[in-house]
Design a protein around this nucleic acid. Sequence first.
DNA 1: CCTATATACTGAAACGTTACAGATTGTCAC
DNA 2: GTGACAATCTGTAACGTTTCAGTATATAGG
Lengths: 349, 349
Amino acid sequence: MDRHHTEKDDEASGQGRPTLKTLAFMTGLGVTTVSRALKDAPEIGAETRRRVQLVAKQIGYRPNRAGVRLRTGKTNVISLVLNTEHEIMSFVSDIIYGVSEVIADTPYHLIVTPYSRSQDPLDPIRYLVETGSADGVIISRTQPNDPRARYMLERGIPFATHGRTDMGLIHPYHDFDNYAFATEAVRHLAGIGRRRLALLAPPVELTYHRHALNGFTDALSEVGASEIPFNTVSIDHSIEQIRMRTAQLMRRDVRPDGFVSSAAAATLAIVAGIEDAGLKLGRDVDVVSKQSSDLLHLFRRELLVVNEDFRLAGAELARSVLGWIGGAAPGSLQSLSAPTEVLAYRRSD
Amino acid sequence: MDRHHTEKDDEASGQGRPTLKTLAFMTGLGVTTVSRALKDAPEIGAETRRRVQLVAKQIGYRPNRAGVRLRTGKTNVISLVLNTEHEIMSFVSDIIYGVSEVIADTPYHLIVTPYSRSQDPLDPIRYLVETGSADGVIISRTQPNDPRARYMLERGIPFATHGRTDMGLIHPYHDFDNYAFATEAVRHLAGIGRRRLALLAPPVELTYHRHALNGFTDALSEVGASEIPFNTVSIDHSIEQIRMRTAQLMRRDVRPDGFVSSAAAATLAIVAGIEDAGLKLGRDVDVVSKQSSDLLHLFRRELLVVNEDFRLAGAELARSVLGWIGGAAPGSLQSLSAPTEVLAYRRSD
DNA sequence: CCTATATACTGAAACGTTACAGATTGTCAC
DNA sequence: GTGACAATCTGTAACGTTTCAGTATATAGG
């Protein structure tokens, strides 16, 4: 144990956090050797490697993030970029937990980078890229022609999008199959005799607006039902706006007898609007809604729901980004999540 | 412009991100001078200072975080520590936005550090402190005798708690006045003739369980109403459990005619349980509930609500941590947020 | 004219890590 | 015995920043 060591590592065994120097002193090796031994480099003797790793574990060595980052440029950070006004509430918490779950036993940290309505959505991305603040980025509210995706693709920084783009460019994504959701919803409503359907869609600028809309109209013609246009509002509008517009719509002569709603909070507003107009859910009109936590059935048992799992989305997105960082082909890191079937209330719920 | 400069800064004007060396080269000064000029050190000439800052702004200089962190130990990171199972959903997104709002024009980044049911809540804190990963920490689910607060106080790392402790130790906190909430709720219920009240409390281990409970019982004796014990469940229990227990309770001979609920999601379950027992909200029983987003009135207009603003909490907590980091006295960084009055539904809602 | 002092600036060292270019040993072929 | 080669280890430099201990110049006091 008392091998030679260059006597200039004087206080390497000091009180503070152990560093490579500490380990070098304790093992009697050079810091280079210790560094390489810890990362299983081939030119280090098997016994030395084991010995170094044992000591490192014993004294609880943790590489200094700033040291690594300064030297290598690797930040070990994933950034989740969020809009502070328009994200669905449960989206934020669930996606964070999903991401966390995946990065839990990696050296990665998750930073949340918010941007507000007033800002260009590209701003936070530019900031991250220019300052080299993250090894990978996750964005939501993806658009068909998304400048953020294009920008990151140009700069070669790994990212994943929640939702797809449509620019002929390949990048990792995770998406919920909103086309399938809308078709299933329409089929279900048709199946219970509803013939005049309205869609509360995502905002037009987001890619999944088209997905939902296409699924909706395709299924309409499939089942021979008709559309009651309801495009004065989207799920991004306030509860009050949606409620008011719904009530207006329901007071018209030709009113929908079925709704497809792309978000749970919006569904509360739709139901309120329906009731404002003096109509009754389940009798005069049925509503199929996406939800991400199992609360809508408590709200009105007549509601028909389809579940979207944001935690899963977060996990998939994190896996994709890590995969890309790890050198996998971006095209192989895309996933689509199928909707559940349309669920009606049963007492056991 | 073409002043002298030591000819060894060869490629200081290279393509990459500008560093102090780049600035030094461009201004013809030494990196030390540039460094000090940027932070308004007094021993730098006024004109030099302006010149350096101008050039820095022009070329978009941003200090390298790794360099600063390695040299100074300052991470410029605030960590928000969250439980992945038991946080209230809107709490997560709102508090994140609140924190973000405050740190937006500071160099701070927000990292989210999650821990799960299976882990010791102290684990993530230990990790953060041992690896020096953050300059400040925000924790929630605070307990009267909170090992995390004690630990951080011992290590001297700035933090703020959402909720108070009761250990005789001083630290920054932000709390909602749950005592006032409970008293107001009871008074309101008594005011509309309710006499047998039940409290759905926070879990016993959290500090605000006592606050809510004390407010509840104090107000009970004040108004001369009686308590129907309902402590088999807390707001941490599942929707199903709360619903079932509520239904059980409501089928008993002596059942409550009023509820005070400490969380919105739990309130949905209470109402479901009430209705399971064949009773009607607003007629047989009234419920006063806290909520953090304005949705309960859509759910059942008979509900009585009190709002708690988590975004404000996040902002306050962030201000507190930054204040402590900045050298303010921890005792001066405590705040308590008063509940709104009890709000009944009005059509304009 | 010399010394003291203030002003404005500077290079070297250090934080912890990894990459590069060796250095030292032992083994083997000839 | 020599040279070649593999195996194993090592020191130095660099990433970008700040701190320390200066240096150079100008100003003022005597």
